[in-house]
Amino acid sequence: MDPINAFVLLANFVLVPALAYGSQLALGALGVTLVYGILRFSNFAHGDFMAFGTMVVILTTWVLQAAGIGLGVLPTALLALPVGIVALALYALAAEKLVFGFYRRQRVKPVVLVMASIGVMFVTNGIVRLIIGPGDQRFEDGGRFIFSVREFREWSGLAEGLALRTAQGITIVVALVVMVALFWFLNRTRTGKSMRAFSDNEDLALLSGINPDRVVRVTWILAAALAVVAGTLYGLDKGFRPFTYFQLLLPIFAAAIVGGLGNPMGAIAGGYLVAFSEMTITYAWRRFLGHLLPEGWTPEGLAQILSVDYKFAVSFAILVLVLIFRPTGLFRGKAV
């Protein structure tokens, strides 16, 4: 029986990675939920928006690196983040002007906008592959670890080690800052309140003199900022590949729907819920059980519920369960 080592092991392989992954999903889901709540459609291009923004961040990072500009132990990508946000915001506003706005003016049903967003998704996907290629890109630099397994072992004297990678630490801190800033914006500023009012009751918002075009623009800018931050953090943590970002759509939508579409608090909770479910279900518990169970009881197999290959099945299962039993999500959101 060795609960301390068991916990350290769990923290190293499940808790810390899930916290980082959950933060990335939460930021992605916030963007999706914001667009759903205010513009009233599920934006399937969000994953590829993330890829587009991250691509700009990577290209900018390379330019900065070539120029010898860096942040020391922190990744240079943080410096490139604003460039990515501006680029994606302009791209999203262009999509609004060329595609979504056209349908919005005709007051089409949401499903038409969803279909349009799938079109935008394919185009964006193509643009990203054309510019940066379909392959893997690593752009992480600076210090790799806040503390490594070896440092932790030497410091604690435990058999198991715990590492905290810089990318993970940054992810958690940045996500927290972004979430606080977003809630402050939505609850405290005049523009933020007008966006919530618009989401609540569009007709009454118009009667109150709220400018719908402005609300739409600000929503796209916010969604773009969230997408770039989420995409960059994910890329720093796990590497960038355009197809992976398209695949992220599933866990992100699962997170947004679990939490209740249109509810920002729910998107955050959903992000962590999906991440922790995915990690715990695909983790091989053998060593963890070995620490906790009496000598000789350690299971023969890996004690893994699902192979990592099937991690998307977890998001999918969560999505299906929520849609069957609680279609408005755990927090009160809009019915899908």
Binding site: R190, K193, S199, D200, L204, A205, L207, G209, I210
Partner: peptide, 24 residues
């Protein structure tokens, strides 16, 4: 104008509803 139905912002607080009334 006060419409017959859907005449408030349900998820906003009372105070925020009034603030939105004064948006202009």
């Amino acid at each position: 104008f006060v419409p017959q139905t859907s005449n408030i912002f349900p998820s906003l607080t009372v105070e925020e509803n009034l603030e939105m009334g004064a948006f202009l």
